[in-house]
Deep mutational scan, measured.
Amino acid sequence: MAAGGDHGSPDSYRSPLASRYASPEMCFVFSDRYKFRTWRQLWLWLAEAEQTLGLPITDEQIQEMKSNLENIDFKMAAEEEKRLRHDVMAHVHTFGHCCPKAAGIIHLGATSCYVGDNTDLIILRNALDLLLPKLARVISRLADFAKERASLPTLGFTHFQPAQLTTVGKRCCLWIQDLCMDLQNLKRVRDDLRFRGVKGTTGTQASFLQLFEGDDHKVEQLDKMVTEKAGFKRAFIITGQTYTRKVDIEVLSVLASLGASVHKICTDIRLLANLKEMEEPFEKQQIGSSAMPYKRNPMRSERCCSLARHLMTLVMDPLQTASVQWFERTLDDSANRRICLAEAFLTADTILNTLQNISEGLVVYPKVIERRIRQELPFMATENIIMAMVKAGGSRQDCHEKIRVLSQQAASVVKQEGGDNDLIERIQVDAYFSPIHSQLDHLLDPSSFTGRASQQVQRFLEEEVYPLLKPYESVMKVKAELCL
Results as ranks from 00 to 15, higher is better:
R396F: 03
E48C: 06
N384M: 12
H442M: 12
Y13T: 14
A335Y: 06
K170T: 00
P24T: 12
Q458K: 14
E213H: 15
L55E: 10
Q409V: 09
D117G: 02
F460G: 05
G156I: 04
L272N: 01
S334D: 03
D73F: 09
Y466E: 14
D349Q: 06
I269A: 00
Q428T: 12
V168G: 02
L53E: 03
D445V: 10
I386S: 03
R14T: 15
S448I: 14
H91M: 10
M26L: 07
D120G: 07
M89A: 06
Y294W: 02
F195R: 03
P467S: 09
S301P: 04
C266T: 08
R190F: 09
S9C: 14
D332K: 00
V247Q: 13
H263W: 07
E425K: 13
P298T: 04
N421F: 01
F433S: 04
Q161K: 00
L174P: 05
A77T: 14
L406M: 14
Y243L: 07
L179E: 02
T244N: 07
D268S: 09
A143T: 09
G96M: 11
S31N: 01
Q356C: 15
L55I: 14
E383Q: 05
S434D: 12
Q177M: 13
E473I: 13
D216Q: 09
N357V: 08
G240H: 07
G203C: 00
A411M: 08
S323V: 05
E48Y: 02
D32S: 14
L121H: 04
S257T: 08
Q416A: 11
F95T: 06
V465T: 07
N68V: 08
N357T: 12
T158K: 09
D332T: 05
M299N: 08
P281V: 08
N71Y: 11
R188L: 04
R374C: 04
Q205T: 09
R303M: 03
Y243W: 01
V324S: 10
V368G: 05
A235T: 13
P467L: 10
E425H: 13
V168M: 08
Q455G: 08
G156M: 00
I57E: 00
R196V: 07
S289I: 01
R83D: 13
E80C: 12
Q456E: 03
I176P: 01
G200I: 00
I122R: 01
G203R: 00
L46A: 04
V324H: 09
G197M: 02
D191Q: 07
G419F: 08
K367Q: 13
I358F: 09
D87T: 01
F345S: 12
E473Y: 12
H159A: 02
R296K: 07
P467H: 03
P318S: 09
D216T: 10
T382P: 00
F28K: 07
W326C: 06
